[in-house]
């Protein structure tokens, strides 16, 4: 475990609404699903009301393989530059998954000093509280 949470300071919750509920429902069930336009097939993240390409409001949740590479990352070093409920240092990564969208999350098994752009990773899920599961990424095939 490379993330250390302070149970006294609850992790910030996502604001779940009718546009993004499918994504967070999937995360709770340990499945990564991505919004897809039923009309033109565009895969979109983050979830939104309509397809930005064809403006269709017909949406579905398509399962993702959950594999990708680290596209960018930040190592929060100074506690006040991060969240007080997560012990610094910790990493936040943007991962470009093979379906072509980018997902922001934390890492499961890579320490901050070992993070590199281009590292292949795959999705995993961390039940960090009774009512909160977050997607994380770990080294591919680890």
């Amino acid at each position: 475990m490379v993330m250390e949470y302070n149970p006294k300071i609850p992790t910030l919750r996502p604001y779940i609404d009718p546009d993004n509920q499918g994504f967070w429902d999937g995360v709770r069930e340990h499945r990564l699903v991505i919004q897809k336009c039923k009309d033109c097939g565009l895969v979109i993240h983050r979830p939104r009301p309509m397809c930005p390409r064809c403006l269709s409001t017909e949406r579905e949740w398509t399962p993702s393989m959950g594999k990708g590479v680290i596209y960018a990352y930040v190592n929060v070093i100074y506690q006040n530059a991060g969240y007080p409920g997560i012990k610094a240092p910790y990493s936040v990564v943007v991962v470009e998954i093979t379906e072509g969208v980018r997902i922001l999350a934390n890492l499961y098994d890579i320490e901050p000093e070992g993070v590199r752009i281009g590292t292949p990773v795959e999705i995993c899920f961390d039940d960090i509280a009774d009512d909160l599961t977050l997607p994380k990424f770990k080294r591919l095939n680890s």
Binding site: P14, A72, V74, A81, G82, I86, L104, N106, I117, L134
Partner: peptide, 25 residues
């Protein structure tokens, strides 16, 4: 917190962190 809730649960919060991601790239 509403618009940034795809970042804040992961502890990416506040502008230095947001900009750091772009700068890393």
């Amino acid at each position: 917190m509403v618009r940034y809730d795809y970042f804040s649960p992961f502890g990416l919060i506040g502008e230095p962190g947001y900009v750091a991601m772009m700068y890393r790239r």
